[in-house]
Amino acid sequence: MKNKTLIIIVIIAATAAALSLGIYQKRTHQINASLLQIEQLMYERPDSAWKILQHMPSISQLRKEEQALHALLFTQAQYKNYIPVKSDSLLRIAEAYYRTSNDSLHKAWTLFYLAQYYRDSDEKEKALSYFQQANIASRNIENNQFKFLLNLHWANLLSDEDAENKGIEKYQTANKYAILLKDTLKQIDLYGQWGWCCLLTGKYDCADSLFNMGLKLSTSSKMTYYNYLLNCLSLTAREKKDYKRALELVNRSLSLAKDSTELYPLWNNKGEILLEMNQYDSAHFYLSKDTRDYDP
């Protein structure tokens, strides 16, 4: 009798264990599927990826591999949705896992976002170190999208650090990957950012050339870029004291702008041009259109 009871208990325990294992495996499969779905959405629909992440189980309930990917995707979604990343704690979870993993791509992305975080935190030495580490991690992967972004953001930081030649080299590398991707928008964006760095460092002819290169690639389907680059060219002309050209360019940009987010910087630029021309009443008229922080 006792033997029969023992056998029944063993069968029940084994059945419960099997059921628990089945439930655990099913849950793990569902979580992995959700994370993969989020990763696929991230590039074209980062807002949707962010919404799905909000409904994922707490990171503490996940396995280490899932924790690492969740932490990376959560940070990536924040950057892509322009949500400030206030801590590197999640990225540290991802870094700890991917440092010893054979997953070079996710390791490279983690190091890249750590570089972004430290750049935004004004810890530039750390940022440069992580950009370098991300570059080493990505040497054996074929992902032109990643390599474009890495070199573009690395170039911007190097330009801010007055490492001009190294910055130019990274911009040129980023442009190579944009061409390989056959992505005109990426090229236009690159020329805009590269030109802006030249403008800020007083290299006005270089800025003018780069903004014009971006403008040539722009079409009506990329009107936001076209409008932005017109205003950039106006700013360059203003710095050169060529006020007639500066006004012509900003007026062209104003004629194409559609909403206040586009109009605010244009009104400000035109006001500043008129102010430098000593046309104070006209300058006040345009500067006061931006009611957010204008002080007469």
Rank of each mutant, 00 (worst) to 15 (best):
Y117G: 07
Y113I: 03
S104L: 13
Q76L: 13
P84M: 05
A77G: 12
I93Y: 07
K107I: 04
P84N: 09
S101D: 12
H70I: 06
Q76T: 10
S101M: 08
E95Q: 13
Q116F: 10
A68M: 05
N81L: 05
N81R: 04
A71P: 05
I93H: 01
Y113F: 14
V85P: 00
L90K: 02
Q76S: 09
F74G: 05
Q116G: 05
Q78E: 15
K86H: 12
D103W: 06
T110A: 03
K86F: 11
A71D: 06
F112R: 02
E66I: 04
A77K: 02
P84S: 11
K86D: 13
A94Q: 05
N81V: 05
W109S: 00
I83R: 09
K86V: 14
A96P: 03
A108N: 08
E66A: 07
A108S: 15
A96M: 13
L91P: 01
R92I: 11
T100N: 14
L105I: 11
S101V: 05
H70E: 01
L69C: 02
Q116C: 05
K86R: 12
L105C: 01
Y118D: 04
Y118T: 12
K107W: 04
N81C: 12
A96N: 13
E66T: 11
Y98M: 08
F112Y: 15
T100M: 10
A71T: 08
L91C: 12
I83C: 02
H106R: 13
S101A: 07
L69I: 07
N81Y: 02
K64A: 14
P84W: 04
L69M: 08
E65W: 04
T110R: 00
W109M: 06
E66F: 04
Q116W: 10
A96F: 11
R99C: 07
Y118A: 06
I93E: 01
T110Y: 00
A96C: 06
A115F: 09
F74Q: 09
Q67C: 08
D103P: 11
Y117D: 03
N102H: 09
H106L: 09
L111Y: 11
L90T: 07
A68I: 02
I83M: 06
Y97V: 03
H70T: 09
Y117L: 12
K107M: 08
Y117A: 03
F74A: 11
Y97G: 02
D88W: 10
K80D: 07
Y82Q: 10
Q78H: 15
D103H: 12
F74N: 14
K64N: 13
E66L: 00
Y113N: 01
D88M: 11
L72V: 08
A108L: 07
T75M: 09
E95C: 04
S104T: 13
Q78M: 15
T75L: 10
A96G: 08
L111E: 13
R99P: 03
L90P: 00
